[in-house]
């Protein structure tokens, strides 16, 4: 570039109008690229019809004490387990403060509906489905659920007791629409 012209355009600290134009053009380019990429990225998020399937209603009338049914919620199994009074008493007698993921049984059920345990049936280790919902299943050392993939044992409140899983089985968001109807999600 012609040196006299360059000096003419340069400010006191050597910056030119061209530097400013480079910066603004670059910034606008970055914004434009981001705007163009966002629809591509967001198209991979759950679509409207997938989101529309986000809640499931379960009629629990036919479940007997001691029985578990498995329902599908968001493509994942949810265990709905009806507990007997003895089961509840037994699981609440244990000291929970020392567990790996300390939670009381009371905080994992809806008060007033203490016999109903609702759990996402996905092991918190790597996403397998724990066994224990069927009568003939292996239930693990704590007589609750047992994950066959990497050997995690859950108790009758779905709390992790042994094995590699870090957390208790999750309790999904749910509410009692009536005494016999649960809406999950």
């Amino acid at each position: 570039m012609d040196s006299t012209k360059k000096q003419h355009a340069a400010g006191a600290d050597g910056e030119t109008r061209r530097d400013f134009l480079y910066l603004t053009a670059g910034a606008m380019g970055a914004v434009a690229a981001g705007t163009a990429v966002w629809p591509l990225v967001d198209s991979m998020s759950p679509a409207a019809d997938t989101l529309a399937l986000a809640s499931t209603e379960v009629d629990v009338t036919s479940i007997q004490a001691g029985q578990t049914i498995t329902v599908v919620w968001r493509g994942k199994p949810v265990f709905v387990h009806r507990r007997s009074a003895e089961e509840i008493a037994e699981v609440r007698a244990e000291a929970w403060q020392e567990l790996r993921d300390p939670q009381s049984d009371q905080s994992r059920v809806k008060s007033g509906h203490d016999e109903w345990l609702v759990l996402v049936g996905v092991c918190t280790h790597l996403g397998c489905i724990p066994m224990g919902s069927k009568t003939a299943d292996v239930k693990g050392d704590y007589n609750g659920w047992f994950c066959p993939c990497h050997g995690s044992h859950y108790d009758k409140s779905g709390r992790i007791r042994k094995g590699p899983a870090p957390k208790n089985l999750a309790v999904p968001p749910y509410e009692f629409v009536s005494d016999t109807l649960i809406r999950i999600g």
Binding site: M44, S45, P46, T50, A54, R74, G75, K76
Partner: peptide, 17 residues
């Protein structure tokens, strides 16, 4: 993970992508 799956579990959107 929800974004990778395109849903709340491994399902059709996951297989498609």
């Amino acid at each position: 993970v929800t974004w990778l799956w395109g849903g709340f579990s491994v399902d059709n959107p996951t297989l498609n992508r």
